Amino acid sequence: MKKTIIKTAAVLLVLTMLMLGFATWRYPFSAFSLYHAVTFDQHNLLFTEYRKELQQFKNYYHNHKKQDDVTSDHVQYILQAYQIPFLTNDKAMKISIDTLDEIIAVLRKTRDDIVELAFTEKYDEETRNYLKLMLIDFLSLEEQAQHVKNASGDSRKVLHLQIRNLRTSMQSNLGHLATFYKLYIETTS
């Protein structure tokens, strides 16, 4: 009788460990997952193009930055959102709940900088429209990142797709910042 109980307990323990292992692998952000992280690899072609665009804008910004200018000062801080490791790291990286919390914090701070610009500075209509577009995009990015963070029932494949979409959306938003700043420089020079 004792041997049967021990064997049954051992089988149940092994099955439980296998189920936890499967849940951890298949559903990385689920409550049953042990690590709450997924490894994400950059797509080399998109990554290379993004790094090139980022460097071009950084060069433009440094060459045209105005001293003691509220917009130029804020763009410096907004630009930091495009330089986080999630966007610039060319190696595979673990995306965990903590990583997503950090991304969300950066997005919120950047959104706050954009809102401050919108309410403290005067821009022509086209420049203001790009600022508005950036604000809308950052609100959407925040929501997207929050959705990924709370995706406890999503499979590894779905999480990879959501993370790739988040990264691609953040990278494409760089063009809005570049256009906004170039229009600002052109209209104030």
Rank of each mutant, 00 (worst) to 15 (best):
K7R: 12
T24F: 03
S152N: 08
A10D: 05
V75D: 04
E142M: 08
Y184S: 07
A37F: 05
G175I: 11
R108E: 14
S172Q: 11
F138C: 01
T4N: 11
R108T: 14
K109T: 13
N89E: 10
E125Q: 11
M1Q: 08
Q171N: 09
D101Q: 03
V148E: 01
S30D: 01
F32Y: 12
V158R: 00
S172D: 10
E142V: 01
A81Y: 10
A178H: 02
H36A: 10
S172L: 04
Y130E: 05
K157L: 12
I103D: 04
F138L: 04
L87G: 01
G175M: 11
R128C: 11
S30E: 02
F119A: 15
V115Y: 04
I103K: 01
K52W: 15
A178E: 04
N44K: 08
K3Q: 12
A92S: 12
F119D: 15
I103Y: 01
F138T: 00
E102A: 07
Y123M: 08
L174E: 01
L15M: 13
M134A: 03
L79I: 03
E102T: 13
D98R: 07
T16D: 13
K2S: 12
D73Q: 08
L20N: 14
V11M: 09
E126Q: 15
D101W: 02
M93L: 15
E186L: 11
V158S: 08
L141T: 06
S140F: 10
